[in-house]
């Protein structure tokens, strides 16, 4: 499945079909992340939200440096 992730084309492995699985795949599941799918924010308790072909996903994670 192909999606757009943070503005770039991104090919998902077959076993990734929810926001939670995508966060795990990107090694972001233990970080604080703001997630948007097709311009709608996905709240933390809805991370079983499906990800479908051609979805536009944006993920911003917090970092500490400055």
């Amino acid at each position: 499945m192909s999606i757009t992730l943070n503005g770039k084309a991104y090919k998902l492995p077959e076993d990734v079909s929810t926001v939670q699985q995508l966060l795990e795949h990107l090694e972001l599941s233990k970080r604080i992340v703001i997630v948007e799918v097709n311009k709608e924010i996905v709240q933390k308790d809805q991370y079983d939200h499906p990800i479908r072909e051609r979805d536009q996903v944006e993920m911003i994670h917090f970092v500490g440096g400055g």
């Binding site: 503005g7 770039k8 703001i34 924010i41 944006e58 911003i60």
Partner: peptide, 20 residues
């Protein structure tokens, strides 16, 4: 908007976080 940039991968995101 909450914005992020990655200069190495070219990824960028801008999220309207009002609902949060």
């Amino acid at each position: 908007k909450l914005k992020s940039f990655d200069l190495w991968t070219g990824e960028q995101a801008a999220i309207d976080v009002t609902p949060l």
